[in-house]
């Protein structure tokens, strides 16, 4: 029996392995393309018309193949249920509210299914979901639309013709059009309008400057609007002010009442010293109230309205004394 060197077997093995390797590679590529080996996601979509869709046709999302048509079956006389096998990897990108539609690959290419995303948020699709669909862009539907458009067009042109007819027969309109003075007045009005807008622009500029300063926090108003700590103090001050004026109003009301009563304040004032003392006391109270009010106002001035001013004034004085 002949002796065979080991290298013979090695080369034979290599030869066979390379050949089988090529075959397996091609089959693997095909399998990946047809989604046979990767894990897939089964979803469904109901169509009225699938336009010659076949099992194995591509499903695309944004123009990228993400799966294939797994099966097509007729559910009833107006519904065809299409089972789609989607790549598991695209699951996060296909939402539950995605819309499936039938399309073609190029002008004369294969029928495909396009998945279209809808802007509103929705959870990712899951196995067994049924997608919404839109009717395919069929030629008869397009012709139907065109028919309606044509009818509308007829109405529009009819109306248009009437309008032009009326216009033609109206003397006033033509007079208006041919009046020279009207044009002149129109021109003047327009000039006035231009002047007015110029003024308006000026005010607008001022306004802008003002608001700009305000935004920067410059000027008392600006400060007022930008300082938050101050706002608190202001609130406090106004509250005090309010209570003071309340007291004042109360007192005055009492005074008025006393004057108006039969044993009015006048005689009381004149006859009764106690009353007079009371009155004095009241007046002191009023004095005290107004003093408080004045104090408050002072504090108010110190706090905001004039503080910036005073500072500026002080700085000005300083520079004036330094200059000479």
């Amino acid at each position: 029996m002949p002796q065979r060197p080991a290298s013979t077997y090695f080369r034979l093995g290599l030869f066979v392995l390379v050949g089988l390797g090529c075959l397996v590679a091609v089959l693997f590529m095909l399998g990946r393309k047809q989604n046979l080996f990767g894990s897939s996601l089964e979803v469904q979509a109901d169509f009225r018309n699938v336009s010659g869709l076949l099992t194995g046709n591509n499903v695309r999302l944004g123009g990228i193949s993400v799966g294939t048509v797994k099966d097509i079956r007729i559910v009833n006389d107006s519904t065809v249920r299409v089972g789609l096998s989607l790549d598991r990897a695209v699951q996060p990108y296909v939402k539950k509210n995605a819309i499936a539609s039938i399309g073609t690959d190029g002008l004369v290419g294969n029928t495909i299914i396009n998945l279209k995303a809808v802007p509103t948020p929705a959870p990712a699709i899951e196995s067994g979901d049924v997608l919404r669909t839109t009717a395919p862009l069929a030629l008869d539907a397009m012709l139907g639309t065109l028919n309606v458009s044509n009818k509308n067009l007829v109405g529009i042109t009819k109306d248009l013709r009437e309008i032009t007819h009326k216009l033609n027969s109206s003397d006033a309109f033509w007079q208006l059009l041919s009046d020279q003075r009207l044009a002149l007045e129109m021109h003047r009005s327009l000039q006035n309008l231009a002047a007015a807008t110029a003024l308006l622009q000026g005010s607008a500029t001022d306004m802008q400057q003002l608001t700009h300063g305000l935004r920067q926090g410059r000027g008392p108003a600006g400060y007022l609007l930008t300082d938050t700590a101050f706002a608190g103090r202001m609130r406090h001050a106004t509250r005090q002010l309010a209570s003071t004026s309340d007291t004042l109003a109360h007192t005055l009301a009492g005074l008025k009442r006393q004057i108006q009563t039969p044993n009015g304040p006048l005689n009381t004032l004149l006859a009764d010293t106690a009353m007079g003392r009371n009155l004095r006391q009241s007046l002191r109270n009023v004095e005290l109230g107004t003093a408080g009010f004045s104090q408050n106002m002072d504090a108010l001035k110190h706090n905001f309205l004039l503080r910036g001013y005073f500072r500026k004034q002080a700085r000005k004085d300083k520079t004036r004394t330094a200059a000479p």
């Binding site: 029996m1 002949p2 065979r4 013979t8 077997y9 080369r11 034979l12 030869f15 066979v16």
Partner: peptide, 13 residues
């Protein structure tokens, strides 16, 4: 088997 492998070598490789 041996002859088969040899023939595979001759016929294939």
């Amino acid at each position: 088997v041996q002859e088969l492998l040899h023939q595979c070598f001759v016929v294939g490789y």
